[in-house]
Amino acid sequence: MVSASFIFYVLAIIIVTMTMIILSHALNPRGHKRSNAYPYESGIVPVGDTNIRWNVNYFLIAISFVIFDIEAVFLYLWSLVVVETSWPGLLTASLFILALFIALIYEIKQGAFNWGIRKEGES
């Protein structure tokens, strides 16, 4: 059950953060005319917009994360009950880990985490 002190703590955190934002807003010097309405790009006029083509590796990382995080969820559960499930459980978990480990090897060999310069033809 959520304790009262936790609720109070949450409220306190929110209040503190809000206060920090509001306080700085209240204290900040106003009235200055600023001409700098551009994003920072080392002091030169920005080029292009932010709609950049992302390296495909970012997506690969995202997908790998999704897969392996779910794997992790199953292992969390297993680690709670290692003693109860005993050897059969360990066996199953080992198989599970083995399967994902092989998948991981496959993924690495596929170059999913190669960020360097690619050879021609590699996607």
Partner: peptide
């Protein structure tokens, strides 16, 4: 089937 899958995966990786 399962072990074939794993072996195949490994062999592709290697």
């Amino acid at each position: 089937l399962l072990s074939t899958i794993l072996i195949l995966l490994l062999s592709i990786a290697l």
